[in-house]
Design a protein around this nucleic acid. Structure first.
Lengths: 106, 106
DNA sequence: TTGACATGCAACCAAATAGTTGCATAATAT
DNA sequence: ATATTATGCAACTATTTGGTTGCATGTCAA
């Protein structure tokens, strides 16, 4: 399943969602309740954010009884780097040089 | 000048803005008018998107007479990878293994 | 079986976003 | 000088987003 890069960028655009990903890097497989602790927003707010992360395939959910366990899926992040962000890498030095020169010609 | 990663993620979240960055990787230093060609939205729409890219320091502007030249700045993209995306890399294999096992235990 | 716990669903609201149009300004070309 | 070109600024609108509250559902424990 290859994820839509648009959803991924959108998912990463919100600080709350990046915070949730950060928490999952610290401890993977947390329940919703656990992820809600010390969050400034309500449980339902967190639920919505997690839904977007799931839609972007950045988080995968496993149900255990009444608990919903959230697991990090690092693959989409790798993908956007390889497919999109990475293309700025080869041109990095060139672009910086071009930029510098343009600034000097001002 | 160290850019705010929030602005960068926000800037990257919109397809129009990624399209603009793509065009600048193809040809750096384009004018506003040039960047507007074959865009589905109005010039003012493009201007607004470029303003966000500038705010995120992803694009740097140089004025030449009445023309506004747009240059790509690849640095912030490097930064977010190194500071944020990269931290998913070391844990990548571990996270994938954890995820796989969690799915199997279902 | 009853109560508590973990979560989902839907309606609603405010703020931010993406887009438009109209007019203004400054630089270049004729 | 005047017309044209390249862009900026401001007001307005529609849609999306991020958040809330209230109630419903399913699972576990006593």
């Amino acid at each position: 399943m290859t994820s839509d890069s648009h959803d991924i960028f959108k998912a990463l655009a919100d600080p709350c969602r990046r915070e949730l990903l950060d928490r999952l890097t610290e401890e993977n497989g947390q329940t919703l309740g656990s992820l809600c602790e010390r969050m400034a927003i309500s449980r339902q707010g967190v639920t919505k954010h997690l839904a977007l992360l799931e839609a972007a395939n950045l988080v995968v959910v496993v149900w255990r009884g009444r608990e919903k366990l959230h697991y990090l899926n690092p693959e989409p992040i790798q993908q956007i780097y390889q497919r999109w962000l990475g293309k700025f890498e080869p041109q990095r030095l060139q672009a910086l040089a071009t930029l510098k020169q343009a600034l000097e010609d001002k």
